[in-house]
Write a protein that binds this DNA or RNA. Structure first.
Length: 598
RNA sequence: GGAGGUGUAGCGUAGUGGCUUAACGCGCAUCCCUGUCAAGGAUGAGACCGCGGGUUCGAAUCCCGUCACCUCCGCCA
């Protein structure tokens, strides 16, 4: 009886054995007499050599075989003849001489080639995803995804966590993202919602005394898609009782360090322990709360240097309570007027009124007349500005400035920083640069609704020493909330939760829920907190983004087996689709079509 | 809700107002070929240029609309 092997695992040690392999025809080379078939399975490729003088029946069968036929081959494993070995293939020293070649299933002509890496229109790949996933590159990604979740499960299992499933049919609490709704047949006019995250359930599990919970949880949000956002996605969801912020950080950080070590491949950690920034510090230095620290080029505050200058754009903004910050763009003093205009348009797209600039020109070692703003400053002021950026004149760098309210300055320059980091190739793509962002504000004012909104979610605990601020200056209160950031992506986020009913009630009040409203939406939580809720907290890591980071993919669809298109459709199954009227009747649903667009 | 990009044989591309009977590579089909490995050689089939209007003597090419996909803004507690 022949032993069954995976195609890619056969080696010279197996020479002489009678082996069976199963797989897909990667390609076929018919030399007239000899036919070579390269058979592929998940493990790799192996060559089948079919000589009509050895086995006429197998040769006949091999003549009719085409790409992607499914075969089972039994035969003798032998060393390839001298001079015909292929060092580029792990199985290149050996080949199978079949005694039996069975076609388990033929395949018709393919919509695209599976056996090469050429670019194929993505819609076509998604429509025939089962073929796309046969390509080695996709198999590698899906396998890496598995290894990552396996690593997470092992890591948490070793630390005494329980993996607990929470329901997919849940109560709608339309605060954050739009919910996906599921109509109830048994309760006419009522709906379940698919969970945006298992947040409330995992807190209930803490009240239930589970102490250490995790779940590889599917989450659903009915919002528009992006290259890194799908309507359904997966997160590693964790919650622990009797812990403080530091316990979560020191649980998660070693997990990612170990994971990079084991599964990162070419990708290496930039730095460990992970640097920690407060939210305020991150906003000040990087212009956002998810800094890409693979490169420098930090935002630099020059407000003090320019507040009394004759340059009205700067002094006026500061007088109005704003600030002036800048970036030093290395080597960009030579930018043409047109290129600089491009930068101006870029920041205007993010709310800035404009972009002032000073060129640290190379030729004459002075700030050149190419900078219209230069004439408003004394030579001493100009030198002071250059010095603030750590730059001497003559470096060929370009200083760019935005003057506005702090939020606008941060957004415009933060976006420009990321853009220029890419454009100037300041980023090493083999680095994984993790950092923690801590001390988020608890709430922020929503001027449109004239109320305070939770920055994280309404269950996040304020720092104990800031509870008093909830009455006096809510915007100044910091939360025990933390994000893990990697390469500019928010990779994980969590917080210490409120576990006391009076604090939770107070916060709901601050967030403008009436007591009745709070009871209707979150009564189960308020009730639970009255029955001995332990202090607890947790974190959730976006699995899809982690896989993107570990595989170097820049698109979330490539790390999901069956993703949705940008309009949230499934190209393969053509979901969503109409349902028949009987199904609708069962659900007490009537369709009101939107008016015909003219 | 908004902005931009793309759409040409099965696949990837070229062609951007007449030289086009739409070209090239891969794939596919037929034939030749017994050591290939991106096999090679020969022959051949395959496209109303996303769809609908319009401008023009003439449109794959210009204009308008529309659809699909992609990227981004808004949105994503």
């Amino acid at each position: 009886m022949a032993k069954v092997y995976a195609c890619g695992e056969l080696r010279t040690e197996n020479i002489g054995e009678e082996v069976t392999v199963r797989g897909w025809v990667n390609n076929r080379r018919d030399l007239g007499g000899l036919i070579f078939i390269v058979l592929r399975d998940r493990s790799g490729l192996v060559q089948i050599a079919i000589d009509p003088r050895d086995n006429e029946e197998a040769h006949q069968a091999a003549s009719d075989v085409r790409n992607e036929y499914v075969l089972r081959i039994t035969g003798q494993l032998r060393q390839r003849p001298e001079g015909t070995r292929n060092d580029r293939l792990p199985t290149g020293q050996i080949e199978i001489v079949p005694t039996k070649l069975e076609v388990l299933n033929p395949a018709k002509g393919l919509p695209f080639q599976v056996n090469d890496n050429s670019e194929v229109d993505e819609m076509l790949r998604l429509r025939y995803r089962y073929l796309d996933l046969r390509r080695p590159e996709m198999q590698r990604i899906i396998a890496t995804r598995h290894k990552i979740t396996k690593f997470m499960r092992d890591y948490l299992d070793e630390r005494d966590f329980l993996e607990i499933e929470t329901p997919i049919l849940m109560k709608s609490t339309p605060e954050g993202a739009r919910d996906y709704l599921v109509p109830s047949r048994v309760h006419p006019g009522e709906f379940y919602a698919l969970p945006q995250s298992p947040q409330q359930l995992k807190q209930m599990l803490m009240v239930a005394g589970m102490e250490k919970y995790y779940q590889i949880a599917r989450c659903f949000r009915d919002e528009d898609l992006r290259a890194d956002r799908q309507p359904e996605f997966t997160q590693l969801d964790i919650e622990m009782s009797f812990i403080e912020q530091e316990d979560i950080l020191s649980l998660i950080e070693p997990m990612f360090i170990g994971m990079v070590d084991k599964l990162g491949g070419e990708r290496k950690l930039m730095q460990q322990p992970f640097p920690r920034f407060t939210y305020d510090e991150s906003m000040a230095r990087y212009g956002n709360d998810k800094p890409d620290i693979r490169f420098g080029m930090e935002l630099t505050d020059v407000s003090d240097l320019v507040k009394d200058s004759g340059f009205q754009v700067f002094s006026g903004a500061i007088a109005a309570g704003g600030q002036v910050k800048g970036l030093r763009l290395p080597g960009c003093a030579s930018y043409s007027r047109r290129e600089i205009d491009g930068l101006v348009e870029f920041v205007k797209g993010f709310g800035a009124k404009g972009l002032a600039y000073l060129a640290l020109d190379k030729e004459n070692d002075t700030l050149t007349s190419k900078s219209p703003a230069a004439k408003f400053f004394t030579p001493e002021q100009l030198a002071g500005l250059a010095q603030r950026f750590g730059a001497a004149t003559g470096t060929g760098d370009l200083l760019v400035f935005v003057a506005d309210q702090p939020a606008v300055v941060a957004n415009a320059l933060g976006r420009l920083r990321n853009e220029m980091g890419k454009r100037l190739k300041l980023i090493d793509n083999n680095l994984l640069a993790f950092c923690w962002v801590l001390d988020f504000p608890l709430v922020e004012f929503n001027p449109d609704e004239n109320r305070w909104d939770a920055v994280h979610h309404p269950f996040t605990a304020p720092k104990p020493e800031h509870i008093g601020l909830l009455d006096t200056d809510p915007g100044a209160a910091k939360a025990n909330a933390y994000d893990l950031v990697c390469n500019g992506y928010e990779t994980a986020g969590g917080s210490i939760r409120i576990h006391q009913r009076d604090v939770q009630t107070k916060l709901f009040g601050l967030l403008s829920y009436s007591p009745a409203d709070a009871q209707e939406r979150f009564g189960h939580m308020l009730n639970a907190f009255e029955f001995g809720a332990p202090p607890h907290g947790g974190i959730a890591a976006g699995l899809d983004r982690v896989v993107m980071l570990f595989t170097g993919e820049d698109n979330i669809r490539n790390v999901i087996a069956f993703p949705k298109t940008q309009s949230a459709t499934d190209e393969m199954t053509q979901a969503p689709s109409p349902v028949d009227s009987r199904q609708l009747a069962d659900l007490h649903i009537a369709i009101v079509k939107p008016p015909e667009k003219k």
